[in-house]
Design a protein around this nucleic acid. Structure first.
Lengths: 334, 334
DNA sequence: TTGATGTAGTAAAACGTTTTACCATAACCA
DNA sequence: TGGTTATGGTAAAACGTTTTACTACATCAA
């Protein structure tokens, strides 16, 4: 049972393909097709269940109503949640999402961008990594809307939506200081993206502003993509060798590893030892005691991303790129 | 800067489009194109960075190298993890994934299937809901490979990959019984899919086989899609009004809500009160005490799904549908 | 010498749309 | 009357591939 084509409809209705096409695309009025024909054709379409072949449509029009979404890892709850929100909002506006995970690999990211390009996606939403600046510039020079989110790339002029990582990190440290903490550690990753360096900068600045010395030994940079066991050992080592009374984890998965360590070495979180995690996670609310977190406004981010995208898609002229920084909030739990 | 087309390459190389096409598709040898021409063309392709337009290719060949993945909710960690694994494996074989969430809505599911159909996806991976049997039959009659996973549909003859929900549930209850529990509750949902009813059946059978009465009051069926606050209140009500010494949660998000309740009403998990959750979650390992869970073998499920799919895709003839049931394992934590 | 076979390659149709340019006929105006 | 405008519609090109059927020439076997 082959799928119906516009031709089948045209034959059945005894009109030309052109006429059917006009009707499908709501141009019947403006092309002066009579009421009678419109009705007849629409009835036939209804009854036969005909659906236009989007591939053919894409080939002809050059766009696909598909938005490509590239994230680091869709199984990370932060990305999964954002993806879901974006998908939802896009869907309501008639766009579909194709997504893929880069696993922090430059080559994979480049392949993905190429793949999307050959599929003629209409726009790109990317949580980028360093090393794909050139590829992104190419997209921009093709006049395709591109929105970066979560992470920015310093030397590309492009739309960006993200949280205020510096501030969030700064505030987290200040809240530690307010509790009288003196030896505050940071567990972060060595991914070279602004988002991560901002978190580091916020940490450092807050220490210095509050008269605490910055101590390299208290900062652990975990290699991205390494297996969790190694991570756990490194964190364990940090906790065992350094005198620490508070720790900020720069991502939620690092915090989860960290909490596993605490469980293993039976160190309790409490007045002696405080923890804040960046990016919330179900586990943090459930944990006893609750883990304080920096919550990124997922809903706001998704909404802003989509809004920026649709603006670009619907405007003929080039809209200047925007950088939208959304405040994150520190949720104190115990 | 318009994208290059096969024609541009042909002109540059001074050969016909046909020749370029043969070379691109590795048919040069069999079509007896000379070594010299092959090299020349390949060099030009390399240098120019030409990539074939997949849309045009799809239109001509009728397939897209895209697999449609339909799940209930991509932001649920079970689906997010499976999606990532499937994506990975598919990618290695040259397939891309388009995914979408149904939110347990029949209409949305049907729309999605239609959307995928008009995009000519090559195959479908679906975690289905009741009510789309007919749509799935249509896909099958179009000779498109379809794999259901996680949930089966009773009256459709189709490939299925899932865990042994009955056994897992049965074993969970037996483990409660072995600890001397007498009043064992079940918190489940009212989604009408085999996977959920099997979990219920396992619960009931295990009780009866072990000489415990089945008590309707100890089974709470949460309406799917309702907001978490209502769920929490219903669970709270169950815990407050019934004498319970153990509870099995039929999904991980129900368990998370349940744990929130326990935290609120300050009920401790321990020898007096045991919990098992269906589908693991980071929060369960981290929880103090650790929450025992039924762990579905995500890796196995993803691998089996892809294997089944590729078998079908690569075989000319119709392969009989298979039902693959993979054992789940009970992880005891404390 | 003829017919078959192999080698190297190409022209053109087809996939299913959208869109441009066009054709009739009718109606209107002065 | 003739010219313009409105109405209702269509033919055919174009999007970028793949693939079928073909050509032209060379070589070989008998």
């Amino acid at each position: 049972m082959k799928a119906l084509s516009i031709k089948d409809i045209a034959v059945k209705a005894n009109v030309s393909i052109t006429t059917v096409s006009f009707i499908i695309n709501g141009k019947a009025k403006e092309k002066s097709i009579s009421e009678a024909v419109i009705e007849k054709v629409e009835k036939i379409i209804q009854e036969s269940g005909y659906k236009p072949n989007q591939i053919a449509r894409s080939l002809r029009t050059g766009n696909s109503n598909i938005i490509g979404l590239i994230v680091e890892d869709i199984s990370n709850s932060f990305f999964a949640k954002i993806a879901r929100l974006i998908e939802d909002k896009a869907y309501k506006r008639g766009y579909k999402i194709i997504y893929s995970s880069t696993e922090n690999s430059v080559e994979k990211a480049q392949e993905l961008i190429n793949m999307f390009k050959t599929r003629k996606v209409d726009a790109y939403i990317i949580s980028p990594i360093k090393g794909i600046e050139e590829d992104i510039r190419m997209l921009l020079s093709d006049d395709k809307p591109v929105i970066l989110f979560d992470r920015n790339l310093a030397d590309v002029d492009v739309n960006y939506v993200g949280a205020n990582h510096f501030n969030a990190s700064y505030q987290s440290i200040e809240s530690f200081v307010a509790q009288g903490k003196k030896n505050i550690a940071l567990v972060t990753t060595d991914i070279d993206v602004e988002q991560i360096t901002e978190r580091f900068d916020g940490y450092k600045k807050a220490l210095l502003d509050n008269g605490l010395a910055y101590n390299d030994e208290l900062v652990l940079k975990i290699h991205f993509n390494q297996d969790e066991e190694t991570t756990i050992n490194q964190i364990k080592n940090l906790f065992n060798t350094q005198k620490i009374d508070a720790v900020l984890f720069a991502t939620n998965y690092l915090a989860i590893s960290g909490l596993k360590v605490l469980k293993q070495i039976k160190k309790k979180i409490g007045s002696e030892f405080s923890v804040i995690a960046y990016d919330d996670h179900e586990a943090f609310e459930l944990h006893t005691p609750g883990i304080s977190t920096v919550q990124q406004p997922l809903e706001d981010i998704a909404e802003t991303v989509i809004k920026l995208l649709l603006n670009q898609l619907s405007s003929k002229t080039k809209i200047p790129n925007q950088q939208v920084i959304i405040p994150a909030t520190l949720i104190i739990r115990d």
